[in-house]
């Protein structure tokens, strides 16, 4: 079975750990616990009748992507860049961060994700979608919306 390493990056408090927990364990906690260093989990995903072993690296949140230790990023097959759509500071440097990753890890796909979509009132979703069109997908670790789809999309990107 093929194994793929996904590294989740983004500012602190955006919900990187929560997204992984939702995907791997289907659990969510309101309590915020800071991740330091790196925490690794795995989950098998079946995509188009192919089993893929996803090794998911949950990194410590940082405002500066260059602070992520290069040793953690060795052998990465795909990045998930997470922003918190309720905190503009967490996506204010998205272009700069993506440029850094694209230059340093050429050909490694990056999926841009806006977490905490549950904080957008339901009736305003269509309006907000335009505001966040720089993101590939809006997800909610709390409610589980689009979390599975998010991992399926990055897997598809890594396999093509």
């Amino acid at each position: 079975m093929v194994s793929k390493k996904i590294v989740i990056v983004g500012s602190f408090g955006v919900g990187k750990t929560s997204l992984i927990r939702r995907f791997v364990e289907d659990q969510f906690s309101e309590d915020y616990k800071v991740t330091i260093g790196v925490h690794i989990m795995k989950k098998q995903l079946n995509l188009n009748d192919n089993d893929v072993n996803l090794i998911i690296w949950d990194t410590e949140g940082t405002d500066d992507i260059e602070e992520v230790r290069p040793a953690y990023l060795l052998g990465t097959h795909g990045f998930i860049y997470v922003a918190d759509i309720s905190r503009p500071k967490t996506f204010s440097k998205v272009d700069e961060h993506l440029n850094f990753l694209q230059n340093k890890y050429q050909k490694t796909p990056i999926l841009k994700v806006g977490n905490k979509s549950d904080l957008i009132p339901k009736g305003m979703m269509a309006e907000k979608k335009d505001e966040f069109d720089f993101l590939d997908i809006l997800v909610s670790a709390k409610e589980g919306n689009n979390v599975q789809r998010m991992f399926e999309r990055i897997t598809k990107m890594m396999l093509t």
Partner: peptide
């Protein structure tokens, strides 16, 4: 094989 021979703060 890599130059990165050390990783700090890995949760296992």
């Amino acid at each position: 094989e890599s130059e990165e021979k050390k990783l700090n703060c890995v949760e296992i």
